[in-house]
Computed example of a mutant assay.
Amino acid sequence: MSVPGQAWHWLTDPAHWAGDNGIGHRLVQHVLLTVCCLVISCAVALPIALVLGHLGRGGALAVNISNAGRAVPTFAVLVLLLLTPLGRWGEGPTVVALVLFAVPPLITNAYVGVREVDRGVVRAARGMGMTGRQTLLRVELPLSLPMVLGGVRIAAVQLVATATIAALAGGGGLGRIITAGFNLASTPQVVAGAILVAALALAVEAVFEAVERLVPRRAGGTR
């Protein structure tokens, strides 16, 4: 039997889906870790990017710094964090490393999205007496929402793929299936783990694409 066939046989074996080390449990861990890191990343990056985009100041520097962060391997950041006092906090180093990895696309897309809003519309909003905060929340944010969601989609897919490094720090997730396969010299298990991660990433991509298609329709329906 070929390796793909063996991997499929491994995936379809009910015994591999049960228990704390089973696919089901590892999948839930992977999703929870991804969602947690995505929420933290959005809470950190989006307010900064939206405000800088609204003000039109310091955004280029923020985008360049965040993009420079993409050049730093996430695994290297994780190793360095494990050597600090943060390494004693369970999933702490993994979460920090993944959040730093997810911030760049969020900042870039949100900042660019706000800056690309028609300036004539913004001036009209201010002419109507809107404050800066009202202009940002009622005009610039709704119009830049597709671009902002695009950044969230990119960050989410990247997190799904990169969250496998949690296994290297003793954490959970689908990465544990892959590392266990390496330890057992089981190529089918390694391939099966990779297939699961790829399938989850594609599912997340599909969900966000569907959401992005609905956003313009809902925005248009409220006018």
Results as ranks from 00 to 15, higher is better:
V148F: 11
V114K: 00
A62C: 12
L46S: 05
H16T: 14
L33M: 13
L196V: 00
V103I: 15
W10K: 05
R217E: 10
L143D: 04
W8G: 03
W8L: 13
A45S: 13
V211T: 13
V215K: 08
L136C: 07
V77M: 14
L149M: 15
A210S: 13
I177Q: 01
G175S: 07
N21L: 12
A62D: 01
L136V: 08
G19S: 09
R115V: 14
P4I: 08
V79T: 11
T222H: 10
A163Q: 03
G170Y: 09
V114W: 00
H16E: 11
V121R: 14
G90N: 11
V139P: 01
I154T: 15
V197T: 07
L61Y: 05
V152I: 15
P142H: 08
G92S: 04
A194E: 00
G24F: 11
A169T: 02
L33G: 00
I107Q: 01
R123F: 13
T135F: 03
A219L: 15
T162H: 04
P85E: 04
L61W: 07
A155S: 15
L82M: 12
G90L: 06
S41A: 15
V197K: 05
A161E: 05
T12L: 14
V114M: 04
V211K: 11
G181D: 03
H25G: 02
P93Q: 06
V103A: 03
W89N: 06
S41H: 03
P14D: 07
Q6R: 12
V190T: 08
R213E: 07
W10A: 01
A68S: 13
T94W: 04
E140L: 08
I154Q: 05
L137D: 05
T74C: 08
G113R: 01
N109R: 04
A219Q: 15
A68G: 14
V160L: 05
A167C: 08
A125Q: 06
M128D: 12
L86E: 04
V160F: 03
E205Q: 14
R126E: 14
F208H: 11
L159W: 12
W10P: 00
A180N: 13
G59D: 02
A76V: 15
R176S: 06
H16V: 10
S186A: 12
T84L: 10
V95K: 02
A15K: 10
A201H: 06
I107V: 14
V28Q: 08
L136Y: 02
A49L: 09
V99R: 01
T108C: 07
N64V: 05
E212N: 11
G53T: 07
L136N: 05
A18F: 07
L196A: 01
G170F: 06
V96E: 05
L98S: 01
R223I: 07
V35A: 14
V35W: 13
G90Y: 06
P14S: 11
A180I: 10
N183P: 02
